[in-house]
C-alpha cells in the first residue's frame, strides 16, 4: 500500500522522500540530497548530489560510490536541521556506520529503520532503541523460523569447523561488507591470532574497519600469497559470488561453508551446494523485529523488504498495531542475490 499523501514521508519514484527536508532516504535513483542508512549497494546508490551518512561509513561509501562524492559525515544522536525537518541518525547495529534515521517536522515523527539487528556485534555500534509516531521497518527475516544464536556461539562453531581440517584449507563464504569483518572480530575475541586469507572483494573493505579500531586477526589478501604456498589448515574468507568461481581454483580440495541467516533452512544450503551452513545474520530475527517494533512505540508501522506481508499481518492481528506492507523497490537481500556483496563496479 502507498503512503498517505500529506505525511512527513512520501513514496516517490526515486524512493522515500521527505518534502520538509527535501531529502530522500536510501533513494533508488540519483537525487540532489540522499540520507543513507548504510553503505550496502541496495541502500547507497551512485549519482546523488550530496550524501548524508555516519562518518564511520565514509571510507566504504567512497570505495563503492567514488572518491569524489559530496559526503556530509554525521555522528550518532546528533540533531540536524535540514530544511524544515529535524533529522537524527541512530545506531542500527547492522554493519559499520549503519543507522536508523529519525525525522521530525510539524509535530510528527518518523523512524526509518534501514537494516538492523539486535544481536551483539563487535564490529559495529549496538542498536539504539528509538521512539517515533510512525516506523518504517525492514522484514528480511520476518518469519518465526528465524531465531539467531549469538555471534560468539556461531563463531565458536566456525572455529571448531576450521580447526577440524588441519590437512586442507577451509573456505568460508560471507558477505564482503559487514559479515566478513564481524566473523573476523568474533574470531579475534576467541583468541585467534593466525593470519586469515581474504578474497579481494573482502580485502577492499578492511581499511575502514581497521581505522575504526575494530580488533581482528591479521589478514592477507589472497593475491599476495606466494605461488605454491601450503594452504592446509588455512582459512579463506570470500564473498558468495566467488563460490565455484575459477578464482578459487587453488581451493578445490577445501571444505566450504557459508555464513548467513539463510542457512537456517536446510534446503537453502543444499540449493547452493555449500558443505556447512553457519546461521549468523546482520538482520533482526523474528523476535528482534517484534521487539524493535514494540520499543519504537509507533502507532503506525510500514513494513518493507522480504516478509513484509507476513510481519504486517502478524502485527495487526496478534499485536494489535496498525501495520501495512509498503510496496516499492525495496529489494530484500535474497539468498540468491549477491548484489550486496559484489565489489562496487
Amino acid at each position: 500500500m502507498p503512503l498517505a499523501p500529506g505525511g512527513l514521508l512520501q513514496l516517490s519514484p526515486e524512493g522515500l522522500y521527505c518534502p520538509a527536508a527535501q531529502a530522500w532516504i536510501d533513494p533508488w535513483r540519483p537525487v540532489p540530497r540522499a540520507l543513507i542508512t548504510h553503505a550496502h549497494a541496495d541502500h547507497a546508490r551512485p549519482g546523488c548530489g550530496e550524501y548524508w551518512a555516519i562518518g564511520a561509513s565514509e571510507g566504504i561509501l567512497r570505495e563503492r560510490l567514488g572518491a569524489e562524492i559530496t559526503l556530509l559525515p554525521v555522528d550518532y544522536g546528533q540533531l540536524h536541521r535540514i530544511g524544515a525537518a529535524r533529522v537524527s541518525f541512530h545506531a542500527a547495529g547492522h554493519v559499520l556506520g549503519s543507522a536508523q534515521i529519525r525525522l521530525e517536522a510539524g509535530g510528527e515523527s518518523w523512524l526509518v529503520s534501514g537494516d538492523y539487528k539486535r544481536c551483539a556485534d563487535p564490529s559495529c555500534e549496538p542498536f539504539e532503541p528509538v521512539q517515533a509516531d510512525v516506523l518504517i521497518s525492514e522484514a528480511t527475516f520476518g518469519l518465526p523460523i528465524y531465531r539467531w544464536q549469538s555471534g560468539a556461539e556461531i563463531a565458536a562453531e566456525i572455529l571448531a569447523w576450521w580447526r577440524s581440517a588441519p590437512d586442507r584449507p577451509s573456505v568460508l563464504f560471507a558477505y564482503a561488507f559487514g559479515k566478513a569483518q564481524r566473523v573476523l572480530a568474533e574470531l579475534h575475541r576467541l583468541g585467534v591470532s593466525d593470519e586469515v586469507l581474504l578474497h579481494g572483494a573482502v580485502e577492499r573493505l578492511m581499511a575502514p574497519y581497521r581505522q575504526a579500531g575494530v580488533a581482528m586477526p591479521p589478514t592477507r589478501p589472497l593475491a599476495e600469497l606466494e605461488r605454491g604456498a601450503d594452504l592446509s589448515g588455512r582459512l579463506l574468507i570470500a564473498p558468495p559470488a566467488a563460490h565455484r568461481s575459477r578464482g578459487l581454483g587453488r581451493f578445490t580440495k577445501a571444505q566450504n561453508g557459508f555464513v548467513s541467516g539463510w542457512m537456517a533452512v536446510r534446503g537453502a544450503r543444499h540449493r547452493r551446494g555449500y558443505g556447512r551452513g553457519f546461521v549468523m545474520s546482520d538482520h533482526a530475527d523474528w523476535s528482534g523485529l517484534l521487539q524493535s517494533v514494540r520499543e519504537s512505540r509507533a502507532q503506525q508501522v510500514y513494513v518493507t523488504h522480504g516478509q513484509s506481508n507476513v510481519l504486517a499481518r502478524y502485527l495487526r492481528e496478534v499485536e494489535g498495531i496498525n501495520a501495512e506492507p509498503l510496496e516499492g523497490h525495496f529489494e530484500a537481500e535474497r539468498f540468491d542475490d549477491e548484489q550486496a556483496t559484489a565489489p562496487a563496479s
Binding site: 518469519l143 518465526p144 523460523i145 528465524y146 531465531r147 537456517a264 533452512v265 536446510r266 534446503g267 516478509q307 507476513v310
Partner: peptide, 17 residues
Amino acid sequence: EACHAQVGDSAETVALV
C-alpha cells in the same frame, strides 16, 4: 503456512518454529 512455504519441509518447519 508462510513458514512452510519458505522451508519446504514440514518436519523441518516444526523444528524451527
